[in-house]
């Protein structure tokens, strides 16, 4: 199983880098955000890379997870357990939204964007202030623990990478890709199309939900617009496309490289950065639609 070994090495190296980085670099927020974006890009990859559905409203699951976990923490649940609550909240939302998978292409993307905006508006509605604190946002300062939340983030990242690896190597993952290419033939070949897509959808939501929970715990004071910000979806999509979807390393590479660039350039010259980002997307679609990893794949090199 040389492929499996390659995946194991890739995951181990990435995790070791994130585990050791805090001893060398003091701004843990940058490291935390980077790990969160690697996990989000991989979570998006579970859906987009393996089924072709591009969820513009991926942040809806992230925000739902953030609110689910935070409200659980405020109700007295230990934070680690609360992360599971956050993930569960996102999975429940995804289950309710399963009918969206009947839509194709751009319709699905826009509908998912609309649900994310709807979630933000529902959470911040004053009528729900007793439940969600409405527009006042949440304050978890009592549970604030940057180190624990960082390690929790790394565990989530490890599980996400393992999930993508499984999809990349297992018959189930192959079946999903067959559905993406040609649902009719795949169905005739005995692939349970609806079941396979729904499974990828729910798993992808679970990833975003748990990352959102860890993010909220790490941030500890936030408003609805903080965790339902459209730019979170955008970042995850761009990172995935840039690296190359349907691989393990593509989205991770995209997230690490572009987030590092964002931290180095974006913070001091953001307008130029947004311009570069926009033009980068245009260029990618026109000239490199399958991302960085496709440069290697074209030469017959297997990328984990």
């Amino acid at each position: 199983m040389p492929k499996l070994r390659g995946h194991a090495w890739a995951i181990a190296v990435l995790l070791a880098a994130f585990a050791l980085a805090p001893s060398f670099y003091g701004n843990h927020s940058v490291l935390f955000s980077m790990a969160a974006f690697v996990a989000l890009a991989e979570g998006l990859n579970v859906l987009y890379g393996f089924t072709g559905y591009l969820p513009f409203g991926y942040v809806g699951f992230f925000g739902t997870g953030a609110y689910g976990a935070s409200l659980a923490i405020l109700a007295g649940t230990p934070p680690l357990l609360a992360l599971l609550v956050g993930a569960a909240a996102s999975v429940v939302l995804a289950a309710l939204l399963t009918p969206l998978l009947r839509l194709s292409g751009a319709y699905f993307s826009i509908a998912s964007l609309a649900t994310a905006e709807a979630m933000r508006l529902i959470v911040s509605n004053p009528a729900l202030t007793p439940l969600t604190k409405g527009p006042y946002g949440l304050n978890l300062q009592a549970a604030f623990h940057p180190h624990q939340s960082y390690w929790a983030m790394l565990v989530i990242l490890a599980l996400t990478l393992a999930l993508v690896s499984y999809l990349r190597l297992s018959p189930f993952g192959l079946a999903l890709q067959a559905v993406r290419e040609d649902p009719v033939s795949a169905a005739m070949a005995g692939v349970p199309v609806v079941y396979a897509r729904s499974a990828a959808w729910l798993l992808s939501a679970a990833v975003a939900g748990s990352v959102g929970g860890a993010f909220a715990w790490h941030l500890s004071v936030f408003y609805p617009q903080t965790v339902f910000s459209l730019s979170t979806s955008i970042f995850a999509i761009v990172f995935t496309l840039f690296g190359g979807a349907a691989t393990l390393l593509g989205p991770a590479t995209g997230a690490v490289l572009l987030y590092a660039l964002y931290t180095a350039v974006g913070l001091s010259a953001p307008q130029y950065f947004q311009l570069i980002y926009g033009l980068l997307i245009v260029g990618l679609v026109l000239f490199l639609p399958y991302g960085l990893t496709s440069l290697l794949q074209r030469r017959g090199i297997h990328v984990p």
Partner: peptide, 21 residues
Amino acid sequence: ALNDQSSTSTAETEYNQLITQ
């Protein structure tokens, strides 16, 4: 001074940057 572009998550990393770096 750092520019957070009105984004809270950017602001968080930058406050941290100012403190720790």
